[in-house]
Design a protein around this nucleic acid. Structure first.
Lengths: 195, 195
DNA sequence: ATTTGCAGAGTGAATACTCACTAACTTATT
DNA sequence: AATAAGTTAGTGAGTATTCACTCTGCAAAT
């Protein structure tokens, strides 16, 4: 049996995301989720085996989305500097439209729930790291980026800055324009990354 | 009544920290905490009004510790570059000895609990930001650090890199030496920060 | 004599999840 | 075309468990 995702499942994970954003991890309860869907708690279990599976599907959606956007950028015919900017612009635009996914990327607490969820998030972070690393290596090889240190370090600075930017946006209750502010930050970092 | 901290209270917040590190936020329950202390749950309430107060005291301990270490460094007679390194070395050494405090700094989930806890953590982050900013400005004024962008940006890169380093350490279950690895990362960043 | 530090047995609220059952719709058989 | 069988998506009332927290009582220290 092919494990496809139904329309109803999509609606549920959208509601789950909304709850995560509005009320945090503690707000993502079966009761709240059912209420958000305008049906009973038990109806939830017609569509998912358990709550863990709901979160896992949410993560896999985010993961697929990021991977497809990153691959497009990585395979395009632009230089490393442009790829770097395109990648973060794409990220900021996506999270601007889908802010609820932030919790997944940032939240430590989600990881405490189950080993499977923890591994999914770890894998997502590693994939992101890998994509960025390809760009950094390309930049170093084409003499655009700093070559004094390993590409891993450059990736680390970029990812760290990106994550902190997202955290500040969330803490501020999404009060500033993440696309403008985020790109400004990442552009500033770029001038440091360039040799 | 003066709100002094008893020896027993100290023991309790130490146990609370241990639980946070070993089992995450979800592991910090009154039951677990009482068990860790080898007494009953109700005994907890002889020493604290409620659970929130335990977490708040934990945060204030971390806050005091960081502030005192940072002030010593900020007031010492060394240049900005040395202050930068001293600050992060001090941080890595502290968290190496007291890894349970990581959860407080990193965890988003803790902030969902109560408004007071959220504000304490926000304040802690802001204080750290401020201390780092003083160093960055000093470095810019003495022509050591990059002057093309605001000090805030430099602080952002440093804090972001630091936090990501701590997150990776935690995700790896504290499997590498954070002092060595952390200092290596922050030193690499320093070469980029220097103009 | 009062306070301190604890135990033990409880509380209500919340949690994820299960159960038996039903109404509506689709498909297959006659 | 009419009936029978099966599927899907829902309800409402429950489950056991966990949560932070309280009440009463008791022994030891002050």
């Amino acid at each position: 049996m092919v494990d496809t995702t139904s329309k109803r499942q999509q609606e549920i994970i959208e509601s789950a995301g909304k709850l995560l954003m509005e009320k945090g991890i503690k707000g993502l309860t079966t009761k709240n989720l059912a209420h958000e869907m305008n049906f009973s708690e038990s109806a939830l279990y017609r569509h998912f085996k358990n709550k863990e599976d709901i979160v896992l599907l949410l993560i896999s959606f985010l993961s697929d989305n990021i991977n497809s956007r990153f691959n497009t950028i990585l395979n395009s015919e632009i230089n490393a500097e442009e790829k770097y900017l395109a990648l973060f612009k794409s990220q900021f635009q996506f999270f601007k439209t889908n802010p609820h996914f932030i919790v997944i990327v940032l939240s430590d607490g989600l990881m405490d729930n189950s080993e499977d969820i923890k591994n999914s998030i770890k894998k997502l972070i590693e994939t992101n790291f890998g994509a960025l690393k390809r760009i950094m290596i390309e930049g170093q090889e084409s003499n655009l980026f700093n070559q004094e240190m390993e590409a891993d370090s450059l990736v680390h600075f970029a990812m760290g800055s990106f994550r902190l930017q997202m955290l500040q946006w969330k803490i501020s209750n999404f009060s500033f324009d993440i696309e403008t502010q985020g790109l400004k930050t990442m552009t500033n970092l770029l001038t440091l990354l360039k040799k």
